[in-house]
Amino acid sequence: MVDNTHQDIDAATGTATTGHEWDGIKELNTPLPKWWLYILYATIIWAFGYWILYPAIPLPGGHTSGVLGWTSRGAVQADLADLRIQRGAMVDQLSRSTLQQISADPKLAEFARAYGRSAFGNNCAPCHGSGGQGSKGYPNLNADRWLWGGTLDQIHTTLVHGARSGDPDGHEGNMPAFGKDGLLTKEQIDAVANYVVSLSNPTTADVSAGKLVFGENCAPCHGENAKGNVDVGAPNLTTKIWLYGGDKASIVETLVNGRGGHMPAWKGRLDPETIKALTVYVHSLGGGQ
């Protein structure tokens, strides 16, 4: 505040002083511009409005909650409810329809694929790749070579319960570690690996020794013709698509150490409609049966 009883004009600048003087130095009175001050006052009045409308002032037993009754958690729940209403009709239809009905209805299927694609980018792409192309240890979902089956219902079961996920209903059963556990000798492993390579890379070399080992040890899971069995998650070994690699070294590694990929169960993490949409999306990627 300026003490207006002193109206002392500074000689050098012609400006009034505040009347304060320290060690012979006088303080000039250059007040804040009016427009600036008024904005300051306006924000103070605005703050009072805020105090009345929103939670603001702590009191001994609680705090003022404001006449709007706003809470940050209430706000996000209202936003989420709006979102559900926006998506409402379609998501409702997803939840009411079976997977077969969804993929038979072009409009609903298109919605499911778009909805599924966005959930895929967030939850699945880090393992299966952004287009579902997979990488070593993470299966390619575009190809018609399924570990656990490629029908809508089979894909849905895999998504809901996962594989080796700890979910009691999840897919179980590993590729045994034939080498490490001493089930096969080095020579037998070498022979059967040659045979497995020959299934997708026809060769004139003699692989009958490996075929014999295969019939005795591998056929129960992979099938007599090595075309796999989706009930135990044993893949088809006659195609050029591989989960862990189809060169001899990778196959030997598979045989020595065993394998057992881990696919999380999505039951608790994603809601049922999202899982349905994902199923339809994955089914549409190119490998669906």
Binding site: N123, P126, G129, S135, G137, G261, P264, R269
Partner: peptide
């Protein structure tokens, strides 16, 4: 937590580009 498998976490920590190009 639980979103990915232990294998994925290990692979990703050792070389993130091996799983997320």
């Amino acid at each position: 937590g639980g979103k990915y498998s232990d294998d994925w976490q290990r692979g990703h920590l050792s070389n993130p580009r091996s799983v997320v190009p």
